[in-house]
Amino acid sequence: MNLQRVAAMIQRHFYLYQRSPPRIMEIFFWPLMDLLVWGFITIYLQRTQLNLPRFVLFFLGALLLWDLLYRAQQGISISFLEEVWSKNLLNLFVSPLRPCEFLAALMTISVAKMLIAGLASALMAWWLYSFNVFVIGVALIPFTLNLLVMGWSIGIISMSAILRAGQQAEVLAWGLGFLIQPVSAVFYPVSVLPAWIQPVALALPSSHIFEGMRLVLETGILPYDSLIKATLLNGVIITGAIAFFYHTLRVVKDKGLLIQRGTE
C-alpha cells in the first residue's frame, strides 16, 4: 500500500469539492431535509400519542445514525461515479494505483463525508429539536464504526455492480442503501417484521446496531451482544464486498469492459 498514491486520490476529490458548491450542499441537503420532515412528524406524533416512550429520542437517533450509514456508502459509490462521469477511470487504471489503494482512498473520503454530514446533522437536531445525539454516550463510537463499515460494504457492492453493468446500474449508488432500510430495524424493532423476513433482518449488522441503540437509549446499558453480532456480521460482509470487487475487476478485465466503463 503506497500512502502517497492514496493521498493523491483524496486530494483529487478535495479539489473537486473545493469549488463545487452543489456537491458540498449535497452532503448537507438530504440530511437536513430528512431531519426537517421526519423531525416535525415525530414531534407531531409525540403530541398526539403521548404514551410512546422516548419517541423523539428513538426516532431522531435512528434518523441520524441511518444518515451516517448512507453518507458512508455514498462516500464510496458517488466518488467512484465521479471517475466514471469524468472519463478518468482508464487514466487511473493504467497508473501504478493499485485497486487496494483506490479502495483505501474512497474509504477515507467516505469517513470525511460521514463525519461532516454527521456533525452537521447532530448540530441541526440539537438546534431544531433540542435533541442531543450524544446522550447515546460512549456506545455511539462502536455503533458509528459499525455503520461506517456497513456503509463501505454497500458502497463497494454498488460500485462493483456499476463496474460490471455500466452507468445503467448507477441508480444503485443511491438506491441500494434504501433497499435494506426496511429490514434494518432503523425505526422499529425486528419483532415488528413478518416472521419469514426476520432472519434476513438479523443477518444484517444494521438491525443489531439500531436495536442496540434503542436499548442504550432506554436502559443506558451498552448491549454487548448486539455490538458483537454487528461487528462479526460486518466482518463477513466487508470481506465479501471486497472479494466481490476484486472478482468483478477480474471479470471486467476478462470481458474487456473496462474501456467501456472508462469512456461511456
Binding site: Q4, R5, A8, L16, E82, K87, N91, P96, T263
Partner: peptide, 27 residues
C-alpha cells in the same frame, strides 16, 4: 504511460491540479 483522445480528465479541476494528482500517483 498512455494517452487517448477517448479518455478525459476531471473537468472541474485545473490543469495544474490534474497534473499534480497524476504526478503523485506516479510518484
Amino acid at each position: 504511460n498512455f494517452s487517448s483522445s477517448y479518455v478525459s480528465m476531471p473537468t472541474s479541476l485545473t490543469l495544474w491540479e490534474n497534473l499534480n494528482v497524476f504526478a503523485k500517483l506516479y510518484g
